[in-house]
Design a binder for these strands. Structure first.
Lengths: 145, 145
DNA sequence: TTGCTCCTCACGTCACGTGAGGTGGC
DNA sequence: TTGCTCCTCACGTCACGTGAGGTGGC
């Protein structure tokens, strides 16, 4: 692991394909954490981990078709589970509790998968429709030439 | 073909999965045509063809991830080509012109297919990610029980 | 007649876009 | 020092949501 290359908001926006305004907005509504301690007016600085987190959030945003508020809850739930796993590394909680948490996580994943698959089916339908149209047009083109 | 069952805006909204407000908005911005001649304050009435047109517009909206203004241009271009085809039924225009129109249509379809496939790849990526997560969680569940 | 859905403003909201005016780091 | 990117308001925009008050068809 090299020294964390501190990225500026414009760099981050460019690499993930969004705008600085969007990143600030996500910070404002609590979807992204505030970047470290920052004197008012000072530049925000990001790590590669921050970039990856933003990428993940954008994937979920586009793939699940969910509001940013719902997305926030979803990400918070994932974070909460990650915190629990960290705690479990020191000490041994009862495995019944562990199992309950894992079951809950599986439930959330199932919901997300349903959303993704639903959207995927709709896209498949549209793609099929478009290829059918294209085939018809190609046939007409052959007729005309 | 039976007598056109005149549908009200609420019926249309329910069958395609949207709201009356959205349908009125689409009419307002010119994405949907105004329903026949209508005294101010009178109810809007829709045919099955209108319903199918709305469905198509919603599919393109969700599948292409395009603004309603761009979508409007796109639909207008398709309508313009449909009108040309109608005209061609009466009379024989030069086939060079026909070929040019068909080529243009193929170009538009190609753009739309690119958009759909791009979004589909992103969804595939997210789905793969989610199934991987689920597999890991299922393994943990087996460990715990 | 009673509901129900419809109508037209018109303001509110979500997810940002877009300047306005100013400060800070290679 | 000169640009460039950054900063914080704050108003604008797109795609609708949501009442407010009223009319019209089974």
């Amino acid at each position: 692991v090299s020294t964390a290359a501190a990225l500026r908001i414009g760099d981050v926006a460019r690499t993930v394909g969004t705008t600085p305004r969007t990143i600030r907005y996500y910070e404002e509504i609590g979807l992204l954490p505030e970047t470290g301690t920052r004197a008012s007016g000072a530049h925000r600085l990001y790590s590669e981990a921050d970039v990856e987190r933003l990428r993940e959030i954008m994937r979920l945003r586009d793939g699940l078709g969910v509001t940013l508020d719902e997305l926030k809850r979803l990400v918070e739930a994932q974070d909460a589970r990650a915190v629990l796993r960290e705690e479990w590394q020191h000490g041994h909680p009862d495995s019944a509790r562990r199992l309950a948490i894992v079951e809950e996580a599986l439930g959330h994943i199932a919901v997300q998968l349903d959303l993704v698959r639903h959207r995927r089916r709709e896209l498949d339908r549209l793609e099929a429709e478009l290829t059918t149209k294209r085939r018809a047009l190609q046939a007409r083109r052959r007729e005309l030439s």
